[in-house]
């Protein structure tokens, strides 16, 4: 009797079913969110994109349609091409080093050491600090005077020969900024890897140990494959973060010395607000958005296939 009643009730509220089985999500619930997203993201983005085909200065009503001139200029602009090079170098450095350190930290605090909870908090702490504050802090650390900041520390431990003009030397400045970003964000990667590590079954490790597998073999054949979802998310986030890096550069070097730390984000900002070329700036922004989207799609496609294989 009870079973029959339950069956009847299920029939009465019969949910739409997916072709492959399971209940389809009620898409109508997403409509309010989609409307808000369209209003505050899609509409401004598409309406602003129109400026890329004009010579608008960013203020006033005067603007003329210039077709693809801004895009042609972009691909012949030494400053923009230099910024693209810097953007890619920064992204590669951040993706590789930040995730490498994040993984090592996660493995370190996933052990049974007593202070692991404190260490997790310590390593994650920089993430919750404003990037502007972190930048100003590191600008102080990078003070070029021999008796200040990092240079003073190097001198104190007998490494005075390594003192540098960390943000003023065009050959070093980009890597100084990259180090600051990595210092701040490695904890973020650590947390994601840690979440992945928490899901790796202990039984697998135990059975592998019984079979005589060492630490490296267990990491390679058990931990690393099962971390695939975490790797996907970390690589995606750090790639997008690297390609769109802005705050730390503006706060620490303003793109200088010269153009040594300019990225596509700082170029589009300067074109819009310093040079008064909003149209050209929007063209840079459009190309950057398409570039980031393309890289992300290719990356996630590859990483998903890797997850499936794992």
């Amino acid at each position: 009797m009870t079973v029959t009643a339950q069956a009847v009730r299920r029939d009465a509220v019969k949910a739409p079913r997916r072709r492959g089985g399971g209940i389809a999500p009620p898409w109508l619930f997403a409509v309010p969110a989609l409307l808000i997203y369209a209003l505050v993201v899609l509409y401004p983005a598409f309406s602003g994109a129109g400026s890329a085909f004009t010579d608008w200065s960013g203020v006033g009503a005067q603007r003329s349609f210039v077709g693809l001139d801004n895009f042609q200029q972009l691909f012949h602009d030494d400053q923009a091409l230099g910024a693209l090079r810097n953007t890619l170098l920064l992204t590669v450095a951040i993706v590789v080093v930040q995730n490498g350190i994040g993984l090592l930290l996660a493995l370190g605090v996933h052990t049974g050491i007593k202070s692991r909870m404190v260490l997790r908090v310590v390593f994650f702490a920089p993430v919750v600090v404003s990037p502007v504050m972190v930048s100003f802090l590191w600008k102080y650390v990078y003070n070029p005077a021999p008796d200040a900041g990092l240079n003073a520390a190097l001198g104190a431990i007998g490494l005075g020969g390594l003192r540098q003009d960390w943000l003023g030397n065009p050959s070093i400045a980009l890597w100084s900024v990259a180090f600051t970003v990595i210092w701040q964000c490695a904890g973020y990667s650590m947390v994601i890897f840690l979440a992945g590590l928490e899901g790796v079954p202990q039984e697998l490790h135990e059975s592998a140990m019984v079979d005589g597998a060492g630490t490296v073999a267990r990491f390679r054949h058990i931990t690393w494959p099962l971390l695939a979802p975490a790797v996907t998310i970390n690589l995606m986030l750090s790639t997008v973060g690297g390609l769109t890096l802005f705050t730390q550069i503006i706060a620490m070097t303003n793109g200088g010395p010269g153009y040594a730390t300019d990225t596509l984000s700082t170029v589009l900002y300067k074109q819009a607000f310093v040079f008064g070329k909003f149209g050209y700036s929007t063209a840079v922004a459009l190309v950057l958005a398409i570039f980031v989207a393309a890289v992300s799609f290719i990356q996630i496609g590859y990483l998903r296939s890797r997850e499936t294989a794992a």
């Binding site: 973020y188 947390v191 979440a195 992945g196 928490e198 899901g199 079954p201 099962l226 979802p229 998310i233």
Partner: peptide, 21 residues
Amino acid sequence: ALERSVSRRRLLQLVGGATVT
């Protein structure tokens, strides 16, 4: 045992809070 590994959706839930913050 493999069913207990963390899926991407679960990971997104885990990191979602931090991301939103």
